[in-house]
Amino acid sequence: MLICTALSLLPKETSGEYGPIAGYVPVVLLLLIAIAFPVAALAAGRLVRRKVETPEKQIPYECGVDPISDSKDRFSVRYYMIAMLFLVFDVETIFLFPWAVIYDKLGVFGLVEILIFLGILVVGYYYAWRKGALNWV
């Protein structure tokens, strides 16, 4: 019902077809189904399965040996480096998407522009490589 109401409010294009926003309504529908499925599966499981809790069973698995410390421990700083580098490159790819779509209208200007853009990025990439940010271990 809500979907119907929302749909009737959506702007129409001149051709009488529904605009680009209407295309997302099925996405929302399937999203709701996709959320309902795991929730229903968990609920069904809770109804039929038996649960016998013993302290031994609930200990985190460490190959049969009692765990020594908490798992919220320090870990390698490399993961932070990867996260930061990813952020840089990911923002860059966001710029590349619209550029690629209208490339045939940009012509030589588009090529020169992207060479400058990638050139700046490659300098940073080379610096990170030389400083050993990409080395593991």
Binding site: D70, D73, I82, A83, F86, L96
Partner: peptide, 27 residues
């Protein structure tokens, strides 16, 4: 959330691997 060292390592590795290869994939 598992409170297990193996799980933590697996989760970290997986996230680092997935973000690294996502770049090459999108490019």
């Amino acid at each position: 959330a598992s409170n297990n060292k193996y799980s933590l390592m697996g989760g970290l590795r997986s996230s680092a691997q997935m973000v690294s290869y996502e770049l090459a994939m999108v490019m």
